[in-house]
Simulated assay, not measured.
Amino acid sequence: MAKEDCDQTEKGSRGQSNSVVWCEQRQGRITSSNLGSVFNRKETTPPDNLVKVLCGYISFDNRFVKLGRDHEPAARNVAVEKSASQSTNHHQHGADRAVDNCVTTTLESNCCSHTDHKGSTTAWWRVDLDQLTTINAITIYYRAQYPHRFAGYQLYVSNSTSSPQDGVLCFEDISTTRDEVQMVVTHQCPYVCQYVTVYNYRNNQKRHDWYDDYAVLELCEVQVWGCPVGRYGDGKCDSVCSGNCLGGNCNATTGDCFYCVPQQYGIKCEMECPLNCLDRLCENIDGNCSGKERQIEVSVALTD
């Protein structure tokens, strides 16, 4: 560790077990407080639990990760190895580390991006998906044990990069306590976009006393579940949306159309609007006429 990092760790870890820095720096190290557990372990006792304790094992079996896993087979992670950028770099922890397909949430793993933590009032991270993409959900893995830095973040999707807050706000964290901040979380974000941005800020008067003083982002992985516009499928995005979908776009998982071209309706816009609808225009879902119904003249042949 550099002297700067050592000084920061010493200052941040005062209070020991009450300090998140102290907890993180103990991960993967044998210290005076756990040395006894190593020497006193019986040969007949399986080492699994002891290894987990020493390595700071964190279970990801929660409902938010399950939601991300449920989406994984249906749409693919379109952010992997795409071009990423961020407001500043902390040492070697560049933006691309959040799209390297590594979900380990410790800085020592070299899997996490990290913006500079000195004096910043705003911080942002962005991935360019290369093309317009239909998104279902976005999963974020944040650096473990640093909720005070992640808290208050915002998630945006956009088609431009003139400002970190361009586009549509998909989510904003409003946690009121440290424990409420979800460090691994999946957000539903059903939009079409090319860029995904994570943004955070700190006001002169912090929103909560437990917030970090400065705006910092430490993203270990950002997974964007979706498909390029016009495609959907089973993790490969190898199926083409129906030509009756308006703009050729559909749900990246199911292939269902968001809207139909005129005169069509149904889940995949496979049915024609009724003849009695004015201009053959009807509702996408049920086929009910959008406007007035027209009178259909029926000729009846009279016979003797």
Rank of each mutant, 00 (worst) to 15 (best):
S109A: 15
S109V: 06
N110H: 15
C111H: 00
C111I: 12
C111K: 02
C112A: 03
C112Y: 01
S113C: 09
S113G: 08
S113L: 04
H114A: 11
H114E: 04
H114Q: 13
T115F: 02
T115L: 02
D116M: 11
H117R: 13
H117D: 15
K118A: 14
K118W: 14
K118M: 14
K118G: 09
G119P: 00
G119T: 07
G119Q: 04
S120T: 13
S120A: 14
S120F: 02
T121G: 03
T121A: 13
T121N: 15
T122G: 01
T122R: 05
T122E: 11
T122I: 09
T122N: 02
A123K: 07
A123C: 06
W124F: 06
W124H: 10
W124M: 01
W124L: 09
W124E: 07
W124C: 03
W125C: 05
W125S: 01
W125V: 08
W125K: 08
R126H: 08
R126Q: 12
V127Q: 08
D128P: 02
D128Y: 10
D128K: 02
D128M: 01
D128A: 05
L129V: 03
D130N: 14
D130H: 10
D130M: 12
D130P: 05
D130S: 13
Q131R: 15
Q131S: 12
Q131D: 13
L132G: 05
L132F: 13
L132V: 10
T133N: 10
T133F: 05
T133E: 06
T133R: 04
T133L: 05
T133V: 06
T133A: 04
T133S: 04
T133H: 04
I135L: 07
I135N: 00
N136I: 11
N136D: 15
N136C: 12
A137G: 05
A137N: 01
I138D: 08
I138H: 01
I138Q: 03
T139C: 07
T139V: 13
I140R: 01
I140Q: 08
I140A: 00
I140G: 07
Y141S: 08
Y142R: 11
Y142E: 09
R143M: 12
R143W: 13
R143T: 07
A144P: 03
A144Y: 12
Y146C: 10
Y146F: 15
Y146G: 08
Y146M: 15
P147E: 12
P147S: 03
P147Y: 15
H148K: 15
H148P: 00
H148N: 14
H148V: 07
H148Y: 15
R149F: 11
R149L: 11
R149Y: 11
R149M: 13
R149Q: 15
F150A: 05
A151Y: 07
A151Q: 04
A151S: 07
G152W: 11
G152N: 10
G152M: 04
G152K: 01
G152V: 09
